[in-house]
Every structure is written in C-alpha cells, then in structure tokens.
Amino acid sequence: MNSSALSQITLPESPKILMILMGSLGDVARGIFLLPPIKSRYPGARVTWVVEPKCEPFVRLHPLIDEVIVFERGGGASSIAKIFGQLKDVKAVVSLDLQRHFKSGLFARVAGARYRVGFHRKDSKEFNWAFNNLHIAPEPQDLPKLSHYLKFLNILGIERVDQLRSGLEELDLSKFWPERVESNLKNYVVVVLGSSWHSKDWLASGYHDLIRELLSRQGRTVILVGDNNHQTVALSLMQQLRSERIIDLTGKTTLPQLVAIMRGCSFMVGPDSGPAHIAGALGVPHITLFGPTSPARTAPLGSLKLVVQSPVGCSPCYKKRCPGLNKICMRLISAQQVLAKAEGL
C-alpha cells in the first residue's frame, strides 16, 4: 500500500482498533484524547490498548477502552510469544502506532492490521516507519505532542474535533480515594516532588519555600505526591515545616488513587512529568516547572499560561542528567515565580 497516495481510509462501522502506546505516563495521558473522537465517529468500535505494567492501572480506568494488552518488558522469550499471540487475536483492521520505536512498530506488524498507521519517517525512531504502511505527515519538532497525536484521527476520517476531551472527566473515582485522607477535603494543592528525569527535578529548598507560603499566606492544605524515590525529600519537608496541613502520600498511592486525589484539588505544582499530563486530561490547572524540556512541545493541556521557566541558553537540552551545570535551569526557578502563577487559582 502506497502511504503517500492515501490520506484517509475506509473503515467498517464497528472496526477493531489497536492502539499501541506503552511508554511514559505523560504520553499515555495525552494519547487517551484520541478515544472520545474515535468512539463518537465509530460508536461500535472495539478499542484494544497495548501498554506496559507501569501505566496499566491508568489505562484500565478509561471507560472507552475495551481491552488492555500488557507487555511484560524483561519477560524474555515467553513474554514475546505471549504478546505476539494476543496481538494476532485482536484481529484489528487498523493499528495506531503512537510509540514510534522499533518495538511498537514490530507489534503493529505482528498484529497484521490491514491499515498500520504510524509517524512519518522523519518523526520516528529505530526504523519504526518501516513496519507501518500509512504515515501521518512530518511535523515541526515544536508541535505540541498532543496535537501530533491528533493527526492520526485525520487518516481515520475524523477531520475535526470541536472540543478536546480525555474521557475521564465524568469518571466516578470515589472508590479510589485514599483512606488516610479525609473524604471531604477542600482547598488543597497537590505538589509533585519529582519526575523520572533527574534534570527535571526542582530543588528541595524551592519546594520548602513554596509550601511554607501556601500554608501561611493562602491557608491551603498541601498533599505531597511522587514515587519511592521522592520520599526522602518529602520526609525532610515534613520535618522542617511541621504542619498538620501537609499530607505526605509519596510512594503511598496507586495510580487510580493519585488520579482521584488530583481531580479534587485546586491546582497542582510540579515538573514536566506524567502527573502533569494526567492533570491536563482531568482539566486540573498545573503550574509546570520547565528546565530541560520545551513547554511548546510538552506543556500540559490547558496550562501553557502556567508554565514557569528560567531564561538560560542551554534550555531545552533534553538531557536526563544535567551535563555539568548543576541543573541551572531548575535552580533559577524561585518560589515567588510559582506563587505568582498560583494567584487566582
């Protein structure tokens, strides 16, 4: 099939659609915005999503996903054989390879859909393009990643999306509310203490000054979230600030519990991370601290005006570890800059 000769495909009214997006939580949180337009155009569609274990609980929350296939990375030959069988069993008529790596391209090819849609060769990696037979057009590197994903809809015959929705807006999350947090909690802020990149993490002193002001000037309750790697910072903040209005949930929540906590908050603060893009999917304001990555590309949906970024020439560098400048892009962000963005939220 000549991908350059075909701008749209013709699908049955109840197509089986395979979506492949396994990687980062932030990418998955943006990818789910494709689901409401797809289900609106094809109400009888059956959507199967391929994901890795880290993001599985989040994907399983979504009411528009009919089946979840989990790839156990590191599981050896048996894991590969298992997912190959599962992919073939889907019998998809179209696959959407949103991952753009070798592995996702291989999975799309093994699934055997008639239409295998992927990124253009210029925008993919590891020969991913070679596994797919339809490709979206190349785009500028600073195009927002969500906008890039939405280009896949055009090939499905969905040319216009009047209102961006994630499909999570009306989801009942009450059963996931953590027991250690009072159920009627109001006027609270969720503070994300880090990300998977060391270079994106803000200084502990910055968090200290910010939280102190949120407690004293704004009378907020502050909930600290993050994974096990952020518990040391959280413990230090708890010991220094000594307030009953700080709740430490770092390393203590499941993904569904985190989503439930996030949806009820006034706003969030944190680096460019997975929770930031879940906030975008929930419609929650997120003050995002940008350093090594570009807000033009990855600012959470609806929160571009809440970006805080220091004016250093080496940003964005897209390095997971700062190459010798001691994270100057993050060090120069002050608590006062963040508080200025919080006014009125």
Rank of each mutant, 00 (worst) to 15 (best):
S4C: 07
Q8C: 12
L11K: 08
L11M: 11
P12F: 07
E13M: 13
S14F: 06
K16D: 13
I17S: 04
M22V: 13
M22W: 11
G23V: 01
G23Q: 13
G26L: 01
V28E: 00
L35G: 03
V47P: 01
W49E: 02
V51G: 03
C55P: 12
P57G: 09
R60D: 02
I69W: 05
F71H: 04
S79H: 09
K82C: 15
G85C: 07
V90L: 07
V94L: 09
L98Q: 00
L98W: 00
F102S: 06
L106H: 02
F107C: 05
F107I: 01
A108S: 15
A111Q: 05
K122E: 15
E126K: 00
E126G: 00
N128I: 05
N132V: 09
N132D: 07
A137D: 15
P138Y: 07
L143S: 07
K145V: 15
L150I: 01
L150S: 01
K151M: 12
L173V: 03
P178Y: 14
L185G: 05
S195T: 04
H198P: 04
W202M: 07
W202I: 04
W202T: 04
L203P: 05
S205W: 04
D209P: 07
D209I: 05
I211T: 12
R220L: 13
D227E: 11
N228L: 10
N229G: 14
Q231H: 11
T232L: 06
L235T: 10
R242D: 08
I246G: 04
T250L: 15
T254C: 06
T254I: 05
T254G: 05
P256D: 08
L258C: 13
R263V: 09
V269G: 06
G274S: 06
P275S: 09
P275G: 06
I278Y: 01
A279E: 01
G283A: 08
L289E: 01
T298Q: 13
A299P: 03
S303N: 02
K305G: 07
Y318F: 14
R321E: 09
C322L: 09
L325P: 07
I328M: 08
C329Y: 02
R331E: 10
L332H: 08
V338P: 02
L339I: 12
K341L: 05
